[in-house]
Structure formats: C-alpha cells, structure tokens
C-alpha cells in the first residue's frame, strides 16, 4: 500500500513539476508548483515524518500565495490573466539542468549506499531534529527568534511611508 502511495505521489510530484514549465501563466505555474510540493509533503508523511510533512503543506501553501502577491508587485502581467511563456534563457537552462541531472544520476549510481543498521526510531521527527541540530539546538532556537525579529522590524521599517500611506495617518 505504502509503495503504491509513494509511486503515485512521486509521479504526481514530477508531473506537476513538469507542468510548471508547460502552462502559460504565472498563476497556473504557481499552483502547479504548489501541487508538486504538496506531493512532497505527502511523501514525508509516508516516512512517518508527520510533523514535517504537515509543516511542508502549511509552509508551501503560504509561500505560494506570497508568490502570488509578488506576482502583482513585480510582473508586467500582474493578474496572470493573459497567457505568457514561463520559459526564459532556454539554452542556458538546458545546459545547467542537464549538468545537474548528470551529476545527480552519477551520484546515485556511484555512491555506496549503506545497509540499514537497526530499526527506524519511534519518533522520526525528533530523531531527525537531533541528528540535524544536535547540541546546537538552543543556538538554532535563538537564531530562529532573531531572524523573525529581524524580518518583522525590516518589514515595519520598509513599509513606513509606503505608496498608500500618504495623508490619512
């Protein structure tokens, strides 16, 4: 069952990823990318990383909607209502992505994959967190709060006297 779900999610993730470059508007590309990320979130749930999987779903939805906000801020076609090509710098992109693909495939085939020793931990999310951060956990937490404070204050400073804050305050 898990294998079937994995393959469905994996193929859907790749399929939506391809769709990002096939569709003809910013809005459609945004949501194709979102669908692809949601499939990745599902794959993480499949690995029993429930918390991280749901977090990926939460963050990717918000992120893609923020991208929609950027769309209206910076695009020449803010509404995404007119068809436009999603492809730029085709030759360069082809070379770069081809090189990355070759490197990744070479990695897959040449690396000596380790045999599994022991069994999966009871709480993989906790185990992953400890493996990634270990002794640096308090440091990372403090840094996280510092980054948040920086973001909030940067936005507050940047939006002071914005375009629409003329005479009504």
């Amino acid at each position: 069952m898990r294998t079937v779900v994995f393959w469905v999610l994996a193929l859907a993730a790749v399929g939506f990823g391809v769709a990002v470059f096939r569709v003809d508007s910013m809005a459609r590309a945004t949501f194709a990318l979102l669908a692809s990320f949601l499939c990745v979130g599902g794959t993480m749930v499949l690995l029993d990383l429930h918390y991280l999987g749901v977090l990926v779903v939460l963050m990717m939805i918000m992120e893609m909607m923020v991208m929609a906000v950027f769309m209206i801020m910076y695009m020449m076609n803010p509404a995404g209502l007119m068809p436009m090509s999603m492809l730029h710098n085709r030759r360069g992109a082809l070379i770069i992505s081809g090189a990355v693909l070759v490197a990744l495939v070479a990695g897959v085939w040449t690396v000596d994959w380790p045999e599994r020793a022991g069994r999966p931990p009871g709480d993989p999310t906790r185990a992953l967190g400890e493996a990634v951060m270990g002794a640096q956990m308090p440091v990372m937490i403090v840094v996280g709060v510092a980054i948040l404070a920086t973001m909030v204050s940067a936005v507050v400073l940047a939006t002071d006297r914005g375009r629409y804050d003329g005479g009504d305050r």
């Binding site: 949501f31 429930h50 918390y51 779903v57 939460l58 939805i61 918000m62 909607m65 509404a79």
Partner: peptide, 28 residues
C-alpha cells in the same frame, strides 16, 4: 494515517487552504 499528536499544525495547515480557495475563486 496522521496522528492526533500534530492536530494543531494540521488545523493551521488546513485553514491556510482558505487563502488558496479565495484567491483561486477570484482569479478563476
């Protein structure tokens, strides 16, 4: 499949879907 132990995160994730739905209704 999802355990109850992450209920609040799931609640938060699902309520953010409202952003997608309202924007999609507006755009679509």
């Amino acid at each position: 499949m999802l355990p109850w132990s992450i209920g609040v995160v799931w609640f938060n994730a699902m309520e953010v879907v409202a952003w997608v739905s309202v924007w999609m209704v507006g755009w679509g």
